Simulated scan of single mutants.
Amino acid sequence: MYWLTNGGILMYFILLMSIIGLAVIIERFIYFKANQQITMVKLRPMLREALEKQDIKGAISTLGNTKSSTARVLREILAFWYQTKTTNIISLEEKGREAALAQIPQLERNMWILSIVAHTTPLIGLLGTVTGMIKAFQAVSIYGTGDPSVLANGISQALFTTAGGLIVAIPALIFYNYFNRKIDEQINEMEKGSAELINYFRK
């Protein structure tokens, strides 16, 4: 409350942005923890064994129960092959690409909100700096420079909003880049998994 009281009305906007940013960060952590822990390192042995045994239905069922974007893409490719029995590599690649594109919105969900928090909050802090300095100089023009507290009040507001904006924006930017890295890793996993599975059908 001390910061809100001394930072002026813009501190409430910064507080709101911090709550929104924190909510997105928690949601993304839960999503990646719950849905993106299974990689090709774990999927490869199961998939290889199923293909060697020609147990395609079993592989499709197992992949369908696995919470992973890569598993979902592989399942779509296998299901497409099982239904069509096509050996057309281009068709399989297109199906893999289509399935991967369908996963991307889930991976990127709410990232635009975190981007807004990371890039807008410093500007709100900067606006608070400007309005605080305007308030300080208006006070000086009215009351003169005899009382330092008159000038200090506006400068204090300016510094509070600047600091508040940076305190919120820096972690938001760090987590924004962290989650983007996680998204890139998942996209690479999907591409690698699709390529490995489709290469099997080239034989």
Rank of each mutant, 00 (worst) to 15 (best):
G128W: 12
L151R: 05
A50K: 15
Q103Y: 00
K203P: 01
S69M: 09
Q37D: 12
A172M: 07
R97H: 11
R44Y: 08
K57S: 03
T161P: 04
E191G: 04
D147L: 09
L74S: 10
Q103T: 08
M40K: 10
I104Y: 00
T87P: 06
L159D: 03
A163K: 03
I187W: 06
I170F: 06
L101Y: 10
I25L: 08
I25H: 00
A118V: 02
M11P: 05
L43Q: 04
S194H: 06
K42G: 05
L126F: 11
T129V: 04
S115P: 07
K182G: 00
I183D: 01
L159K: 02
I124V: 15
N35Q: 15
S115V: 11
T129L: 01
L127I: 15
N153I: 02
N199C: 14
D55N: 07
A169Y: 05
T5M: 04
E185F: 02
A79W: 09
S69W: 01
S68G: 04
L114I: 15
P105T: 13
I183G: 00
V24S: 01
N6H: 13
G7E: 00
M111F: 10
F201V: 08
G132T: 02
I19N: 07
I155M: 10
I19D: 12
E189P: 03
I142A: 13
I38R: 11
A71L: 03
I60T: 08
S68H: 07
A79Q: 06
S91W: 01
S149K: 15
E76S: 15
G64F: 10
R44T: 10
Y82G: 07
M17A: 13
V41G: 14
K67Q: 13
S194K: 07
G154N: 00
I167P: 05
V41I: 13
K203R: 09
Y200H: 15
